[in-house]
Design a protein around this nucleic acid. Structure first.
Lengths: 207, 207
DNA sequence: CTTCATATTGTCCTTTGGGGCAGTGACATG
DNA sequence: CATGTCACTGCCCCAAAGGACAATATGAAG
């Protein structure tokens, strides 16, 4: 599996050494001397890739960069690679979703294994998101009113109740309902509810 | 939040010291000199509690015990507490779902925080399971035929199609459908689909 | 002012879903 | 054999959903 590895480390000689090893293994590589450099570059989330990140770097630390990326919605897998690992940092990084936490010097085998896993995981996550994303796109085309109707439909309300709650008539609800089914590209209530559930819109149910 | 803490450590004096500290904090404590002792005791999964586990113990190691417990379906949260933590072990333990990985000597604050988090997490997981469990119980009361009808209903099939696929009549399907709604204790198709989705019965959809 | 999207509503008709009432047939169990 | 469960089904009726055809009203955009 090919992919782009973003290497963040303040040690220039380490960057070139790693870059050489990774390119030999068939990966594309971009290097950054600091966390801020990577943030500025804003790496593409959708392209196959991962981040190889040193913990101790001037400016933003590795874990701090991880938080920023998560907060920014990035889903690029992160592999930490550091000279000296302390337990709390390791635990925190893995809990926050890092793919792995390796210590220098690292064997090529361990490193390439971790990268392969990271890319595989990103791929799985991406295709997962892709499916939901299609639904989100459709959902975004709904007007306010259609969206309200959508919400009530998937909670099992019948047209009569929906009309009452929205202060309109049953006929109007039917019109919106038709639009919802059309725009969401589904042909049955079951599909609609299934999508809503997967998008996490049905966490607390009523009757 | 009260709870039962299972302490696994081969050092008898450490066990009594920890036991004293935890009891002071209001927890019930059971101690075990080895991983096998805990496996033999088969701690209750549903009761509030967690496991405080040393990595290096004679016989089964901490991580090995963790694997066994996971394989056995246990959901008791595990907190590792060890004298010397190496990075790969730490990473593996957290990835496998350990609540935390602490090093001796541990401050009461860190330890009690970790235990509180573990109990909170277990509580959330348990209530989550509880809801689904109720649905599973209802699902189990369905007859074979009702179950078949259920599967087709939540995939968006209409009675006419269901009747055709099962080689019966629409009226019969209606009868089964009625039984399904009754037994599953729902009042709308939306609820039924929502439940099916949560039980993971709708992973691959057709039209 | 014209055009377009949105929201609204009505009438009329068909298809689906839901259910009452009633009855048949298979099969297991006591 | 008596009882009970499960599956199956017909007739009839009502409620709910879906859609065709038509029309009004409002506000934003060009």
């Amino acid at each position: 599996m090919p992919g782009l590895v973003h290497v963040v480390d303040d040690d220039a000689s380490f960057r070139t050494a790693i870059e050489r090893r990774l390119k030999l293994a068939g990966y594309d590589v971009k290097t950054y001397a600091s966390a801020q450099d990577l943030l500025d570059a804003a790496p593409d989330d959708e392209q196959p890739g991962c981040i190889l990140l040193d913990v101790r770097i001037p400016g933003l630390s590795g874990p701090e960069l991880q938080s920023r990326l998560i907060a920014a919605g990035s889903t690029l897998p992160i592999i930490f690679l550091t000279g000296h690992a302390d337990t709390p940092t390791t635990v925190q990084a893995i809990k926050a979703g890092a793919e792995d936490f390796l210590t220098k010097p690292v064997s090529s085998e361990l490193l390439l294994d971790a990268i392969a896993r990271a890319l595989a995981r990103q791929d799985a996550a991406r295709s997962q998101r892709g499916k939901l994303e299609a639904f989100r796109v459709h959902l975004a085309t709904l007007t306010q009113r259609e969206r309200q109707v959508f919400d009530l439909i998937v909670r099992g309300k019948i047209n009569k109740q929906i009309a009452y709650e929205l202060g309109t008539t049953e006929r109007t609800v039917k019109a919106h309902r038709h639009q919802v089914m059309e725009k969401m590209r589904v042909h049955s209530l079951a599909e609609l509810v299934s999508i809503a559930e997967r998008l996490g819109m049905l966490d607390s149910n009523s009757g």
